[in-house]
Structures are given as structure tokens and as C-alpha cells.
Design a protein around this nucleic acid. Structure first.
Ligand SMILES: [Zn+2]
Ligand SMILES: [Zn+2]
Ligand SMILES: [Zn+2]
Ligand SMILES: [Zn+2]
Lengths: 142, 142
DNA sequence: GCTTGAAGCTACAGTGGCTGTAGGTCGTAT
DNA sequence: ATACGACCTACAGCCACTGTAGCTTCAAGC
């Protein structure tokens, strides 16, 4: 039986994160010691490892919930699992494309600056006026 | 003089977002109509356009605050502006590298799945065990 | 001048995925 | 028996917004 701290160390997770996963129903409520402290077994260790690895691959907690549910019906076709992964791949590719466009624009901006005074800094000029840009980049953020 | 709604339309911003920028001190407190509604001029329009364009290029609100402050000292060297942009470029490049690794791993996972049953779905196997992966990808998220 | 409906106002809660803190309790080694 | 680290709950905070409720103001049409 593992304490929450030991489980945390074994999976590279913070203690609070494990409690958070329990709170949102992603991790099951574990057994407790006589004094009320959480005690975990191998099952929970595997489950948390699955969650963490999926997070590292960029899956949302919602997607992970879906994958876990699917994983509990071993006889079903894995088409839905594959669909979740495909969707994740598309999202990653879309983000890459967007960031790649930003990269080009930033690099151009920086390359055009003659390292002079703020008054005629090319970077600020571009930031003030999107007309100076070559690509679109409608949605803010990354 | 522009109402907040007109300013929002002109800059492709939501009304609430403008009020939020004011709340956190990124946009100045504007004048008000007799009835207490916000009224904006060309200065505020420019300022908001700068914020929005910087956001589209992925700068954080904190970085934008810094860029605005620098922009107010036109005689200074633009080295600091360039440094902010460089840092942003590095962050974008780091994120691309990370996402690229995820992309490869996801694609491999999906490619190896023989579209059978959940019980032996390759995708779930990889998610259960990072040993199946080729790359590291320590930090969760994207 | 009056009505009406869109647009504005404040204040606050919620998003995702955690992270940090305060103030108390439990477990275990000595 | 005591000390101290690990645990507990509950809640606030992060980023950059977005949405809602319940009200007030503005502007166009008559
Ligand atoms: Zn410059
Ligand atoms: Zn642009
Ligand atoms: Zn499969
Ligand atoms: Zn892996």
C-alpha cells in the first residue's frame, strides 16, 4: 500500500495533482488508513501512470476520461480510441502550423530591426500595424 | 468618440475583453458619457490594436505591458524591445520542437494500430507504457 | 417628446490544469 | 513520549479571457 507521497514520487506527479484528479473523478477514491490518509495499490498506480503519460502526449483530461472508459470495454472495436488519437494528432498539427507561421513572422520582424532607437524600431512598427505582416494570424494566443 | 462596442468591432475584440484589459491596467481608463458609458478616441484604438496584434503573435499580456512601456520612451535604444521579441521567438521555437516530438509519437502510435479490439489496441498499449515511446516528453501539456 | 430595443453598465462565476497556502492532524523513528 | 515530516481539508491564485444576471443608458423611429 502506497501513501499519496510515494505514489506521487513513483509517477512524477505532485501530491496536489493526484488529489485534484480524484476531485474531478479521474482517479477513483482510494482506501484510507485508520487515521484517514489515502492508501493506493497497483491498480491506482497504473491508472495514474496512464493519465500522466497521456497528458505528456498532450491529451486533455476530458480525452483521457474517454480513453479510460473505452479501455474498460476490452472486447469492443478500438475505432473510437483511434478516433480520439487522430483528433489529438490533428490538433497538434494545427498548433504546429500556427506556431510555424508565428515563428516566421517573429523572425522576419527581428531580422528587419536595425537595432536603433525605439522611435524607429521595426519590431514595434510591425506590432502597431498588421499590414506589415505577410501571414494572417487571426486568433490571439498560441 | 467611439463606444466600447464600436471599438470592439473595429479591433476584432470582445467587449468584455476590453473591459478586462482596463481592469488589469493594460488599457487606460477612458472618458465617460454623461450617463457613464465608456468613450474612446484614436489613441485608445491604436493602443488596443497594438495589444491585439501582439496577442496574435503570441506575446503574453505581461510582455505586451513591457513593450508598451518601452514604446513610450522613443529615444531609448530598442535593445530591450528586441530582447522581448527574441525571448518570444525562443518560446515559440521550443513549443514547436515539443509539439513536433508529440506529432511523431502520435503518428507512430496511430500507424501501429491494427484497428482491432480495445484489448490489443496499440494506442492504449503505448499510453499505458512510456517504454514503448522513442522520445522523452517529460512535461505534460502542450 | 415618447417608446422601444439594442447596447452599455457592474459584479461575479467559470474555463483548464494545475499550484500554493494556512492551519490543523497523522504516522513513525528514536 | 516526542519530534518532525507527511498528510488532511478548504480555499485562493494563475492566464487570458468568456459568460451570466440584473440593471441603466442611448439612439432611432414615430
Ligand atoms: Zn528594434
Ligand atoms: Zn500581423
Ligand atoms: Zn487501436
Ligand atoms: Zn512516452
Amino acid at each position: 500500500m502506497l501513501s499519496i507521497g510515494t505514489l506521487a514520487k513513483r509517477t512524477g506527479t505532485k501530491v496536489q495533482t493526484i488529489r485534484y484528479y480524484e476531485q474531478i473523478g479521474l482517479m477513483p477514491e482510494p482506501g484510507r488508513s485508520a487515521g484517514g490518509q489515502r492508501r493506493y495499490g497497483a491498480l491506482e498506480l497504473d491508472r495514474l501512470a496512464f493519465i500522466r503519460h497521456s497528458r505528456q502526449l498532450g491529451f486533455s483530461l476530458e480525452a483521457i476520461r474517454e480513453l479510460q472508459d473505452l479501455s474498460d470495454s476490452p472486447e469492443r472495436s478500438c475505432a473510437q480510441v483511434d478516433a480520439v488519437a487522430q483528433k489529438q494528432l490533428h490538433e497538434v498539427e494545427a498548433r504546429i502550423a500556427r506556431l510555424e507561421a508565428l515563428r516566421v513572422e517573429l523572425k522576419r520582424m527581428i531580422g528587419e530591426c536595425r537595432a536603433d532607437r525605439v522611435a524607429n524600431c521595426r519590431i514595434l512598427e510591425v506590432l502597431r500595424d498588421h499590414e506589415e505582416c505577410l501571414s494572417d494570424h487571426d486568433r490571439p494566443g498560441s
